[in-house]
Amino acid sequence: MTSRMADNTEPSVRSTILDEIHRIAALHNKQLAPLTDALPLMESGLDSLCVAVLVASLDDALELDPFAEDENLAFPVTLGDFIQLYENAAA
């Protein structure tokens, strides 16, 4: 679970996602590539199971599951697309 920021405001969707990626990578002993928006998710260092864990943990942390809400949704390719998808769902 992502901790709140020092000024007690809710963490952003982006920071929550990045925190979760780092947490899951550490938990599963995965070496992460530098996380940029252009980075393809499958080249991030997370395998498909870790990405599934990420989606499940974001459902807990953000109470959002864009994939369950739109069954025609194509899985995003890059990290930037992934974050955008969650930011749109949160809006």
Binding site: A52, V53, V55, A56, S57, D60
Partner: peptide, 8 residues
Amino acid sequence: TRTMMTQK
């Protein structure tokens, strides 16, 4: 299992 996945 989604809830189990997050607690490993």
